[in-house]
Nucleic acid binder design. Sequence first.
DNA 1: CGCGTTTGACCGGCGC
DNA 2: GCGCCGGTCAAACGCG
Length: 495
Amino acid sequence: MEGKKTPPPPPPPPSFYAPTTSTNTNDFSFVNDSFFEKPPSEVVKVGDFGPFLYEWLGIDDEDAIDPINAVDAAVQTPVNLPPPSPSPSSIILESSQVLPPPIPNSQNSPVFDIIPSEYDPGNTNTTDTTKTAGRKRRAESVAGYGGDGRVSGDEGDENNKTKNRLKLRAATMAKIAATLTIQRRSDNNVPKFAFLTESEDEYLEDGYRWRKYGQKMVRNSPFPRSYYRCTAVGCSVKKRVERSPDDPTHVMTTYEGLHYHGLPPELPPPRPFSIYTDSDVPITAAKPPVARRGSRGSGGGGGGGGSGSARAGHHANNTITSVNVENGAIGSGDDSARAGNHANNSVTIVNVNTGVNTCGGGSGVGDGGSKHSAAIPTDVYDQQMQIVEQAVASVQSYSAPTAPMIDVTPMDVTDNHDQSFLDVDHYGDFFSDEDFFGDEDLFGDLSFNDYNASSSSASGEDLVGKICTGLLEDIINFSPSMAPHPHDQQPFLWP
DNA sequence: CGCGTTTGACCGGCGC
DNA sequence: GCGCCGGTCAAACGCG
C-alpha cells in the first residue's frame, strides 16, 4: 500500500453540501430545532411519511421511539395494519393486510441479524447454480441457496482498515441516499434503486417472485435488458436486469417501486447474513448518547456464524453509522477482511437512484396536517435506513453466497435527470471509478491521513463527512409527503 | 395443459 | 413530421 503518489486535489463538494455553521464536518449539531423552523414545505413531514415507514417495518409508532426495541419487537410480532383508508385508486381485494416483518426469518434475532441455523451456508452443497438463468436458476435457488458463506479477503493492515472504514462511510452515505428513494420520483412517482452485482448469473434471486414481461436490446450495450414484474397480486414492483456493457461480469438490477407484502410463502428463509454498524459517522447529534448495541469493534458480530452481537439496523443513539453487510460467518469482525473484495456473485450496491428533492421540498402534496419536529430526522431517518438495509439484506441474503461488504455508490441509473431532484452526478463525481473510492482512487492508494494532510490546511478535513452533511441536508429538505402510503396500495395476494 | 418465457409489434416520449 | 429509443403488450412457443 505504499504506492505513493501525489494526492490529487479533492474535488470540491457541491456547494450546498458544506455546512455553514461548523467547520467540523462530522458535527451535525446544526441540525437542531431551529434547523427545522422552515416553511412546512421544506421540512420532513413525518406525519405523512412516518406511519408508512412504521407500518412498512411492522412496528408501532410508539415503539419506534426506541428503534432498537421496536425492531426487535417487529421481528417477533407482525403488526396488523389498520383498515385501509378509502382510496379511489386502490382495489380492496382481501382484508389480510398483515405486513410481515421485514426479514421473515429468525424468531428471536433482530432484523438483519440472522443467525445461521438450518441454513448454514457451510452445509449447502456448492453446486454451481449460476450457470443457468431464468426458471431453472430460480428453481434451484428455491431448492438450495448454494453458497459457501465464506468471508472473502485477507486480513488487512491499518491502511486497509482506514480505507475500509472510509468505504463503510461511503456506504453509509449511499444508504442515506438510498433511503431517499422511498420518495416517489417526479417522473413516474415510483422510487427506484439499483444493485450492481458481480455475477455470472443475470437473474438475481431476491426472495420475491417475478414474471418476465419483456426483453430488449438497449443502446450502447451488447447485452439485452430484461423486464420483470412482481407476481404478487396488486403489486406493481418491477425490476430491470441488464449486464453492464463496461464490465460484463457485473449485472445491474434496478428495482422500481416498493413491495407492500411479504415474501412468497413457498420460499425458504433467506440465507444467514448479518449487518453490523460502524460507529464512525454520526449522522445527527440530536440525541444524547445511549449505550450502543452492535457497534463494530465490540466483537464484530459474535464470530463464527454470528452470535448476534452485531446488530444492524439498530442505530442506537441516532448515530447512523456505516453499515457492513455480510453473509455467513462474521469471523473476527475486522473490517479489513472484507472491503473491496468482490467475490463472484457478491452483491455490490453501486447504484442508487435517489429521489432527493433539492428544491427545498415544496411538494405541497400530501394528506395535509403534516407536522414536523426535530425528532423527525432521527427516528424516521433510522427507519428509513432500516428500509434500505432491508432491501440490501434481502438481495444480499438471497443472492450473495459470499460475504463481501456492500460498497455503495450513488449514481444516476435512469438518465432521467430532473431538476426537481438531486442530480446524483454530484455524488457520482465522488464515487465513480475515477474518483476517491474507485480502484484507482485516492483512498485506494493512499491512507486517509495522507489525504487529510494534502487536502486541507485544517486537520481532519473530511470530505466524506461533508458529503454526509450534504446528504443529510437533502434528507431534511426531502419532503416525504409524496411517499406512497401502504393503505393506498392494493392488498397483496399471491396468485 | 398450465405457466412462464420469448419475441416481434406497438406505443409514447423526445429530439431534430 | 419523422425517426430513435425505451418500455410494454401479447401471441406464439416450449418446458415440465
